[in-house]
C-alpha cells in the first residue's frame, strides 16, 4: 500500500503542476487523471471508464445525485483509485472522495492565503538585492508547496484509508471553513487597492467608477468593459489631443491607427 500511496501521490503532483507550471493543459481533467491512476494501478480499461464518467460530471454534462466535489482534480484521483481498488462504481467512489476534496479545498485556501506573505518577502529580498531569492519564491517554493498540498491528502487517504480523512474533516469547525472563505474573498480587495494606488489620480478616478458601476448595475463582463473602455479612450483621445493634431501637420494620429 505504501508503494501505491506514493505513486498516486506523484500523480497528484503531476495534476496540480499542470496548472501551476504548464498553463493548464488539462492534464488535471478527471479523464486524464483517472487514466493515469488506471495505468499506475494496472487497470487501464477501468481507469478509462471511471475517467469518462467523472469527466461527464466535471463538464456539467451529467448531473448526479451527489454534488461534484469542490476540488474535482483531487477528488477524481481519489475516486478513480477507490473505484479500481475496491470495485465500487464511479459515482459511489466520488461520494467517498468528497471529504478528501473538501480537505484539499481547505488546504488550497490556506495555501493561497499564506502565499500572500510571499509578496512581503519578495519586496524585502528585492530591497536587499537578493533578486534570485525573490524569483525562487515563485518557481521553487510556490511549486513545491502546491505539490505538497496535493501529495499529502492523497497519500494519507490511500495509505490510512478515507476514514481518517473523514475524521479530520469532521474536526475542522464549520465557522473556520466559512471564515477562511470570507477572508479569501477579502484579500483581492487589497490587491486591487494596491493596483489602484499606483494608477488612481483625481483626474483618472471617474474611469475606475465608470467601470465599476457598469458591471455592478448591468452585469457586463470584464471583457465587455474593456471593449467599451477602448472605444471611450479613443474618443476622448480624439477630443483631448485634437489641438495638437491640427498644429503639427501630420501628428501621431496615424501611428495610433496602426496600433
Amino acid at each position: 500500500m505504501l508503494y501505491k500511496a506514493i505513486i498516486l501521490g506523484i500523480i497528484g503532483i503531476i495534476v496540480v503542476l499542470d496548472s501551476r507550471l504548464f498553463g493548464r493543459l488539462n492534464v488535471e481533467q478527471p479523464l486524464i487523471a483517472s487514466t493515469l491512476v488506471g495505468i499506475a494501478l494496472g487497470d487501464i480499461t477501468k481507469g478509462l471508464m471511471v475517467g469518462a464518467t467523472l469527466e461527464l460530471i466535471s463538464l456539467g454534462l451529467v448531473n448526479v445525485g451527489a454534488a461534484a466535489p469542490p476540488d474535482m482534480a483531487l477528488g477524481s484521483i481519489i475516486a478513480a483509485a477507490f473505484s479500481i481498488l475496491s470495485g465500487a462504481s464511479a459515482q459511489t467512489a466520488l461520494t467517498i472522495a468528497i471529504p478528501i476534496a473538501v480537505l484539499g479545498q481547505l488546504l488550497a485556501i490556506v495555501l493561497r492565503m499564506g502565499m500572500s506573505s510571499f509578496n512581503v518577502l519578495a519586496k524585502r529580498y528585492i530591497n536587499e538585492g537578493k533578486f534570485k531569492s525573490a524569483t525562487n519564491l515563485h518557481i521553487l517554493w510556490g511549486s513545491t508547496l502546491y505539490a505538497v498540498s496535493y501529495f499529502v491528502p492523497i497519500f494519507v487517504s490511500i495509505y490510512f484509508g478515507t476514514g481518517l480523512v473523514k475524521q479530520v474533516v469532521e474536526v475542522i469547525p464549520k465557522w473556520l471553513t466559512n471564515g477562511l472563505t470570507v477572508a479569501s474573498a477579502v484579500l483581492p480587495a487589497y490587491g486591487f487597492a494596491l493596483l489602484l494606488s499606483t494608477m488612481l489620480s483625481k483626474k483618472m478616478a471617474p474611469y475606475f467608477f465608470i467601470g465599476f458601476l457598469i458591471t455592478a448595475y448591468a452585469n457586463i463582463s470584464v471583457t465587455g468593459i474593456a471593449l467599451f473602455a477602448i472605444l471611450i479612450a479613443i474618443l476622448l483621445d480624439q477630443i483631448i489631443y485634437k489641438k495638437d493634431n491640427s498644429s503639427s501637420s501630420d501628428g501621431g494620429g496615424d501611428s495610433l491607427d496602426s496600433l
Binding site: A185, F192, M199, M204, Y207, G211, A216, V222, I232
Partner: peptide, 29 residues
C-alpha cells in the same frame, strides 16, 4: 513622435475601467 502621453492616457482609462469591473465581479462578498 512624443505620443507616449496619449498611449499612457488610453492605457490608464482602459486599465482603470477594467479594474473597476473586476472589483464588481471578482469579490463575491
Amino acid at each position: 513622435e512624443g505620443a507616449m502621453d496619449r498611449v499612457m492616457f488610453i492605457a490608464g482609462v482602459v486599465g482603470l475601467m477594467v479594474i473597476g469591473s473586476m472589483v464588481a465581479s471578482m469579490i463575491p462578498l
